[in-house]
Amino acid sequence: MTAMPDVLEHVEQAQALQADQPYVLIVWNDPVNLMSYVSYVFRSYFGYSEAKADELMMQVHQAGRSVVSTGTREKIEADVAAMHGFGLWATLSKADAA
């Protein structure tokens, strides 16, 4: 009868570990979104400087993708929803897998 609490505790720990794991927001290149629009979104939504926004935008354009923000899964999910609202092609990924 003592097994249950142990199991529960174990599950809670596993969930806590998953929640703590850092996630990243990846923005992918596509031939439709304007460079000016992507820069504007990076500056206005993330508050990045012109230099940082342009650097990330050029990375998307030239390398095909860029890691644009990092944080908890919850934060990155909100970022992805915001990017989809703007029409950017954005996905989330575990930081160590990106």
């Binding site: 999910e77 992805v80 929803a81 989809h84 029409g87 092609w89 954005a90 996905t91 989330l92 990924s93 897998a97």
Partner: peptide, 17 residues
């Protein structure tokens, strides 16, 4: 294209999103 998959590596998580 307007509503892309959020998590291309994990279809279950993408659907949950």
């Amino acid at each position: 294209r307007l509503l892309p998959d959020a998590d291309p590596d994990d279809p279950i998580a993408a659907l949950e999103f």
